[in-house]
Simulated scan of single mutants.
Amino acid sequence: MNFVDILRPSSALFLDFDGTLVDLAPQPDAVTVPRPLLQTLAALGEYLGGALALISGRPIAQIDEFLHPLRLPVAGVHGTERRSASGEMTLLHTHPLEHVEEVAAALASRHPRLRLESKRGSLALHYRQAPELEQLCVDAMEAAVAQSPGLTLLRGKMVVEAKPGGASKGHAIEAFLREPPFVGRAPVFIGDDCTDEVGFATVQRLNGLGIKVGDGPSVAWQRLDSAAALRDQLQTAVAAKAGKVRA
């Protein structure tokens, strides 16, 4: 896949963060952002007239911290919170998480390698340090969510998460596409996880393109090997659009 040929001034580019822009880490707070990536994203945003947004399961505040001083349009917590290109914040209605929190905390207390992550309207249970506990985590969270109206269960890479039923990366992308500077553009969404599949389906339904990073089944029409490969493609695209020849 040649990203230079895909990206046009009329595109709207949507990017997942973990496993897509940055390599996965043993713990969510341990990821590292290569410094050249900030310059690449800033240049891409300029080329696209600001039509570049991140679509992440992380809270917006975490994304801002990792990308500081760059401040981009972002959908966080799978679209539960969203900051438009103009800086306006939209927060979806959330639902009580008390029962899910009780179940997840009890499980984590028995298995110290599990990690709880509390976000706005969402609770994630990470089992990256204890992959053999996957089914136990899934079963416990499924049962807790089934008893918690308004919540749905989302499975990702070594994580299972309770979130508001109305939140999804696809809905967040559609919301951006109704606003300047994204409106009227051809959407491209790049992600790596099963949580990104609804985003791929959304942009392709809207005559755009989904690009899957890594292996595994996907509805995306294009694929890249790794986050490092994506960073290289983005950097190459920036150089090409600037009329430069990459060394």
Rank of each mutant, 00 (worst) to 15 (best):
D192G: 08
P34N: 11
G170C: 01
P131D: 05
S10C: 05
D23W: 06
Q222E: 02
R205P: 14
E174N: 15
K169E: 03
E98I: 09
L15T: 08
A175Y: 00
R8G: 12
V33K: 01
S56W: 08
K169V: 01
L41E: 11
E179I: 06
A146P: 07
A25N: 13
L38V: 12
H126T: 03
I6Y: 04
L230C: 11
G19K: 15
L37V: 09
E134P: 14
L44W: 04
G87S: 05
L234A: 07
P34A: 10
A104S: 03
G166M: 13
K212S: 04
G210I: 05
L234M: 08
P181L: 00
Y127H: 00
G150A: 10
L38H: 14
F17C: 07
S168P: 13
A146C: 14
L116Y: 01
K157C: 11
E197G: 06
R155E: 14
R8N: 14
S84C: 12
H68R: 12
I55K: 02
V31T: 02
S218T: 03
V74D: 02
P187N: 04
M1T: 13
V77E: 11
T152A: 05
R178E: 08
G50V: 09
V138G: 06
F3K: 13
R246D: 09
G156I: 01
E88L: 13
S86P: 15
A30D: 12
A240S: 00
A75G: 09
R35W: 05
P36C: 00
R246T: 13
L177S: 04
L234P: 12
G79S: 06
E117F: 15
M1I: 14
V159P: 10
L209E: 13
P217Q: 15
G208K: 06
Q147M: 12
V160S: 08
E117C: 06
A43V: 03
L91I: 15
R185H: 07
S226C: 03
E161N: 01
R178K: 13
M89Q: 14
D23E: 02
G50I: 00
R113C: 14
K212V: 03
R155V: 11
V138W: 10
R83L: 10
D196Q: 06
T80E: 04
A25Q: 09
R205L: 04
G166R: 00
P28Q: 00
E98N: 12
A229K: 14
G150L: 07
N2Y: 06
Q147D: 15
K241T: 12
